[in-house]
Design a binder for these strands. Structure first.
Lengths: 191, 191
DNA sequence: CTATAAAGCTAATCGTATTAGCTATTATAT
DNA sequence: ATATAATAGCTAATACGATTAGCTTTATAG
């Protein structure tokens, strides 16, 4: 019988599943169970199989994050904007560990598509830097620094056991200040 | 017949294989072929199967990197030490993309073991900071910043398509300078 | 020399992904 | 309204790698 499913609904369930059980445990078998259908039926929606689902999950994840960090930055400028963006990124990851794994993990394979998917989030970073007096090249460097840090920090935080006696949050703030300080002194930094 | 294999040799072949084909494509099937044995025989060396192999690969990778960055830092202090360490880390990743994937990827599951594996590399970072006038807490923050950046930057660099018109190397240097600048101004940064 | 452990092998099993082909339901064109 | 086509589901069968069971050969300790 018809269940009224479509790609979008399936992706949402798959994303939940990823967050609950980890990216590697999103199987067609269990996804189908959760949706109340049999696993071969999933091929009606994802002809490319598990691979296609993962790609769509990745795209979905980046769109979602894009939305979150965009909201966070609205009406803010300079340091306030950067700080808000970084907090929003970190919050997103903490709430979507599994989905974030897919966003990272799947990138190993389809880097072209991944590039485009994350372009939205990167673009928000550029806009957040608009209010600084920076050359285009300086903006590129800065975005790459912030992006690298956020990505690395998130990965570490998600998988870390202990953050005692020095809380990770303090280190996060420290890092933000260091980077903002770098932006402020950018003329002295770049030859 | 006896082939004279042992864990160490198998791991080395598996590491090569990871670098050639990517972490996800290290299968018992092909690994056995490369070693000239049948895949069930691998269980004589890795009772825990593919899982155990991956864990050992991860440990091997971190030991290897530990050695590399340790060498790089010898006889250097302060900024020179940090710069050398970061370059060595980046070089290691560029030469061991697949192995590095395993080092990252496997961490999702066994975070306790991963912690210990990467502890060596983290320790080298602490030593590299020894020559600065920093409190223990400041060192922790600094190590976490550098580590996050290196991890994020590496992941991005490995999977990125284009670094044109702004070369990634320039961004790497920019980031290093920004972070070193942050270390120099650390008193002003921490409240 | 012999007993035993180690390291290999073949054959069989398991689990998930995937494909093939069938059926009912929905949507659409006449 | 009705005939037709496309869609979304199903069952049965296949494929492929991981894994397990049980056998055999080779080193080696005593």
């Amino acid at each position: 019988m018809r269940t009224g499913l479509n790609k979008e609904k399936i992706i949402r369930v798959a994303a939940e599943m990823a967050d609950e059980k980890g990216a590697a445990d999103v199987t067609f078998k269990e996804l189908a169970e959760r949706l109340g259908i049999k696993s071969p039926s999933l091929y009606k929606h994802f002809i490319g199989g598990l691979d296609e689902l993962n790609k769509e999950l990745m795209l979905y994840g980046w769109r979602l994050m894009d939305g979150e960090i965009t909201k966070a930055v609205i009406g803010k400028a300079k340091d306030d904007a950067v700080i808000a963006l970084c907090y929003a990124y970190r919050k997103f990851v903490s709430e979507h560990k599994g989905l974030y794994e897919v966003m990272q993990w799947y990138n190993m394979y389809e880097s072209e598509e991944h590039q485009q998917a994350s372009a939205g989030a990167v673009d928000v970073m550029y806009r957040a830097l608009a209010s600084y007096e920076l050359t285009e090249e300086q903006k590129v460097h800065t975005v790459r620094l912030i992006r690298s840090f956020l990505q690395g920090f998130s990965t570490i935080e998600v998988n870390v056991g202990k953050d005692y006696p020095v809380p990770l949050t303090d280190s996060f703030d420290f890092a933000l200040k260091t980077m903002l300080n770098g932006i402020a002194n950018i003329q002295n930094i770049v030859q």
